[in-house]
Design a protein around this nucleic acid. Structure first.
Lengths: 154, 154
DNA sequence: TGCTTGCTTGGAGTGCACTCCAAGGCCATA
DNA sequence: TATGGCCTTGGAGTGCACTCCAAGCAAGCA
């Protein structure tokens, strides 16, 4: 009935985990400390992400403890990547909301990702520009260092 | 007597302004608001940079107002680039101190720049990784959008 | 002479993204 | 039974990089 029948059961509509390496055998339920070990985030941060609406609903054990799924880990993977781009958390929350709202937000999600993509491209360009400056300075200092050494020697 | 005789008179030992486009004719003295216009920084930020030791000594007019030189603009250019790399302001202040301390800090400056260069390279790699993820997601949504349209039509 | 504009200062305030705290529940091992 | 470890919560605190404020000075101009 929709584009992909599996869509509504997934946290993110196009998951497709590239690095599913950190998951043991067949289980699909991790404590917060396991997720801490996997992601490098702190437990504080994981709970905070949940509070601000950046996470989908996280399962709980019968005692009320969080039990993260592989899907949750995939989502955290994406969040981590987006974070590296400098995307504000608020924008990621917006994206999470769109995912929760269902298939009719596909267009908006597409646009958000497109915008992000453009941002990433220009950040890469900026960094390459900076790299050129650094290289110039570094070779200056390397040369200056050599000259200094030979001056000491001679 | 040292590696480069002009060294000690320059803010940064290997300036070599690549984009000296924003400087009028022959003058070498700009008000804070001109610098604001050139750099996109706010006057607040420029004064703050000075307070924390990120700037060399800035000239003053007879009434005590700041008068920035081309050298200062070059330095701000570098600072702007380093800022884009995510380098903490404290590290930039450290670099500024090394420059102020004179030629004997060449090695340390070299190492700081080398470290920064490596950071920039890995940031670029991260961003390219993220770009790949975004591209995958974007093409998913593009396809989903097309499928949705054809479903509506058929 | 007063008004406006632009600048000065130290210090206080802001927004973001965490980061931590106190108080307490659950459960396994000694 | 108690000790330790891991987890829970709401709310407060932190660090960074600005960002703003109030009070005041100097210059240009009606």
């Amino acid at each position: 009935m929709t584009v992909m029948e599996t869509t509504s059961t997934r946290t993110d509509s196009c998951a497709a985990p590239p690095n599913a390496h950190r998951r043991p055998n067949g289980q699909d339920s991790y404590t917060i400390s396991e997720v801490v070990a996997f992601t490098g985030l702190t437990a504080h941060t994981l709970r905070w992400y949940e509070r601000i609406g950046l996470m989908p609903h996280i399962d709980r054990s019968h005692t009320g403890q969080r039990r993260y799924s592989n899907r949750d880990l995939d989502w955290l993977d994406l969040v981590g990547k987006l974070r590296l781009t400098g995307m504000p958390v608020a924008d990621m929350v917006r994206y999470a909301e769109l995912v929760r709202e269902g298939d009719h937000t596909f267009t908006e999600r597409f646009e958000l990702l497109e915008t992000t993509r453009r941002d990433v491209l220009s950040r890469i360009a900026e960094l390459q520009d900076t790299l050129a400056v650094l290289d110039r300075k570094i070779s200056f200092y390397a040369e200056a260092g050599r000259a200094y050494e030979s001056e000491k020697a001679g």
